[in-house]
């Protein structure tokens, strides 16, 4: 457990020392959501309708940005080898890496989303559901993304390839995440969507570190 905390602490510390990476992804999130009204037009009813989808797609793309670096630096400087050789099982350490990735790329989005939601005229209830859905959904994105990051580790064209692998797998998260907010706005209640999102999260939390570990071992051989 100590070792897992060390992995998280190190990644957070590193992110503090090079803040630009985290801030770039956040800025990207803001700018992408702000571009949609410019492309579609300022009509409030329409914007309110597309808001959940726009915010979720932007969140998806923003998490993709940092994904490729998830293991790349550790791979290049040999830290990954030391993680494999640690007495702590690699699956747990990978879980730590994923948790750190979420804290740096997912959590800021959760906190920032309501502010952007205001631009789209979402009411307080819808903003709450949006935050909750992102809170459940962004860890899912980090978990699934980790598998892709491990599979494409050290490959040429890794970044583009990574999005080709990972984005189709993000479809359920996108549907249930954006659907929760839409269902709330339509007055249907977001409970069903949110519980499905939570179920997917539980499933991914169980399987993704395992698959990521297997992929990392293959990449290191």
């Amino acid at each position: 457990m100590n070792a897992v905390l060390a992995v998280i602490r190190r990644d957070l510390l590193l992110a503090m020392r090079r803040k630009s990476e985290v801030l770039t992804a956040l800025f990207f999130f803001v700018i992408v959501t702000s571009l949609f009204p410019l492309g579609i037009g300022p009509e409030p009813a329409l914007l309110k309708k597309i808001a959940p989808g726009v915010l979720w797609v932007a969140a998806l793309l923003a998490t993709m940005l940092g994904l490729q670096r998830m293991f790349a630096a550790d791979h290049a400087d040999g830290t990954l080898e030391q993680m494999v050789l640690s007495p702590t099982p690699l699956g747990l350490l990978v879980g730590g890496k994923i948790a750190a990735h979420w804290m740096l790329s997912g959590l800021p989005l959760v906190l920032l989303a309501p502010v952007l939601g205001l631009q789209f005229d979402l009411d307080v209830g819808a903003l709450g559901v949006l935050m909750l859905a992102l809170l459940l959904g962004t860890p899912l994105l980090s978990l699934i993304g980790a598998i892709g990051a491990a599979l494409t580790l050290g490959l040429r064209g890794g970044g583009v390839l990574l999005s080709l692998l990972v984005l189709p797998l993000y479809v359920p998260a996108l549907i249930f995440g954006a659907g929760a907010v839409e269902a709330h706005i339509a007055g249907l209640g977001a409970g069903g969507h949110l519980s499905l999102l939570a179920a997917l999260l539980a499933l991914a939390a169980f399987f993704a570190p395992w698959a990521t570990t297997a992929a990392l071992r293959i990449a290191l051989e």
Partner: peptide
């Protein structure tokens, strides 16, 4: 092996 993991995840 990498393809296999992706196929199983898929």
């Amino acid at each position: 092996k990498a393809g296999a993991i992706l196929a199983l995840v898929g």
